[in-house]
Design a protein around this nucleic acid. Structure first.
Lengths: 207, 207
DNA sequence: GCCGAAGGTGAGCGAGCGCTTAGAGTGCCC
DNA sequence: GGGCACTCTAAGCGCTCGCTCACCTTCGGC
């Protein structure tokens, strides 16, 4: 696995599956623009310009501007879910699996924060149908983390008063990394991942 | 002090200082609209309509749409800072002060989530000058929390590996409440406040 | 009872928006 | 080498945006 996704300009690693080439360039351009200015403040002319194309070219590959956001959201959420599932289903104690889940989930939000920002904060700009589809993926993410915590409680590794609320807090802590993290800051994605794994293990009252 | 700010429709408690009456109505209308749809997706016609006025009336009291966001942001951040300062400067151990700070800060983000959403998530829509002013207030919030944590470490109450990173995580956890909290959810603002105070005390390794 | 200031309206301007259309360039199959 | 599918562009349509302007109403002071 590649060790890091890059910040704006790179960060293309996750979009390899998108074809043809022009459609992928438009998608990457849209991710950068949405992350910088937000969905509603981004114009289709801006997206096309970043991809080196005329405004009309966008509509050959995507029906609407919203379809771009929808595609980005779905691919991003699928990636996030995959990260959590990989950690949740590996061998090991609940403690090890929770630490793994948090550190890799945080690394993704910090290293790929351009993508993560769009995925996590532009959800409300989707129409009802697309929004519902993405929310279903989000509930699956929630279930993966809750599962690990429940395992830890059952095995006696964790001491948690309120499983649902704690699950929410853990996910919330990880997701908010996309809001504040910057490459100019004092910490690397790996360092934030390690710190947060420690903090979360404390939150679940590991012995 | 009043126990709670209400959700959309109410939540006017904090805006008492804004005069004249029409200017306050416009400001409250703008908070609701920005929280629901975001700054860029909100039109001046929508704001004026919610306040029961014609679109032109907005420009008697505010120079631009951005000035509305600026005013809302400043008042909101001042309120947030005041909450943290009150908790940080009261009598008591670092443990008591941190628990107080977190629970009241979280209650504000949950109970007044309409306001808090705008304050915390629409910052990027401000111009450079206004943005810099708000960021200064934000750094003061950070300093208040870091101060309490440093006190706890000095007194031996807390066991923290990384003070700056932990401060960031604590604030991040509280702020993100504004993103996910809803009145239809299973928890009240008071319950979230109490749960989060407990989680944060665990994060700082209270003995 | 007249006046000026303050607060409000209806109509509408220029600009930029998302998106469409007519047609041009390019490569591939037969 | 002619036809066709695919990709892209220049031009621009219809609309809504933030904001302005000419004018109207209300009301306290004298």
């Amino acid at each position: 696995m590649s060790t890091a996704e890059e910040t704006a300009g790179g960060e293309t690693s996750a979009w390899g599956e998108v074809t043809p080439d022009a459609a992928r360039r438009l998608l990457v351009a849209a991710v950068e623009a949405f992350a910088e200015r937000g969905y509603h403040a981004t114009t289709t002319r801006d997206i096309a310009g970043r991809a080196g194309m005329s405004p009309a070219a966008l509509y050959i590959h995507y029906k609407t501007k919203e379809e771009l956001l929808h595609r980005i959201s779905r691919i991003g959420h699928e990636k996030a879910l995959e990260i959590l599932q990989t950690a949740a289903r590996r061998e090991g104690t609940a403690t090890e699996r929770l630490a793994d889940a948090v550190s890799s989930f945080v690394r993704w939000h910090a290293g790929g924060r351009t993508t993560a920002r769009v995925v996590q904060y532009e959800l409300d700009s989707l129409g009802p149908d697309a929004r519902a589809e993405i929310l279903a993926l989000r509930r699956q993410c929630d279930a993966e983390v809750r599962g690990i915590i429940e395992d830890g409680v059952a095995s006696g590794e964790f001491d948690v008063l309120h499983v649902k609320g704690t699950t929410l807090a853990v996910l919330s802590l990880c997701i908010d990394v996309a809001r504040w993290f910057t490459v100019d800051g004092p910490m690397t994605p790996d360092e934030v991942g390690a710190l947060y794994a420690d903090l979360v293990l404390r939150m679940v009252g590991i012995k």
